[in-house]
């Protein structure tokens, strides 16, 4: 009986000597553990306390973001979640998109979307103005 030797393709990224994949593997675990805490507290405060989803409106956001604590919380959560998600999707694209061109375009779209989300989200947190609401009862707007 003859046995055929399976042909194993060479890795796509042979020339790379960087440790990027190692660092991204570690980042997924570190950011993941932090995100468990950040997101579960986010969901608890916004959806379970008070009147839950029915209380979420402009005044609710204004109340939260008048505090540097929640501004920082949301900023860290935004950056970690978006980078964690981008790296996760990058892995999935590498696994399933077989053609070089397909991988290139999907990853270009992914990175563009991630930059938009991080820049837009960061700007929104830092430039938020609670006083554009004429009915605001916050003391900073009086």
């Amino acid at each position: 009986m003859t046995t055929s030797t399976p042909v194993i393709q060479a890795p796509r990224n042979r020339a790379s000597k960087s440790n990027f994949e190692l660092y991204s593997w570690i980042f997924m675990r570190l950011s993941g553990v932090l995100l468990v805490v950040l997101i579960i507290a986010h969901l608890f405060v916004n959806l379970m306390l008070g009147d839950g989803i029915h209380a979420v409106d402009f005044a609710f956001v204004a109340g939260k973001w008048s505090s540097p604590f929640w501004q920082s919380w949301d900023l860290i959560m935004l950056w970690l979640a978006q980078l964690h998600g981008t790296n996760g999707l990058r892995t999935i694209i590498n696994d399933y998109a077989q053609r070089d061109g397909t991988r290139f375009w999907l990853k270009s779209l992914l990175y563009l979307a991630s930059i938009v989300v991080i820049v837009l989200g960061t700007l929104v947190i830092f430039t938020f103005d609670p006083c554009i609401d004429p009915d605001s009862t916050l003391s900073v707007c009086q």
Binding site: L89, F128, D129
Partner: peptide, 20 residues
């Protein structure tokens, strides 16, 4: 679930941006 959460996060940042 990861892909699902990724797409929701995209929508969630856009909807929150409407506070501006």
């Amino acid at each position: 679930t990861g892909v699902l959460i990724f797409f929701f996060l995209f929508a969630h940042v856009l909807d929150t941006a409407l506070v501006r």
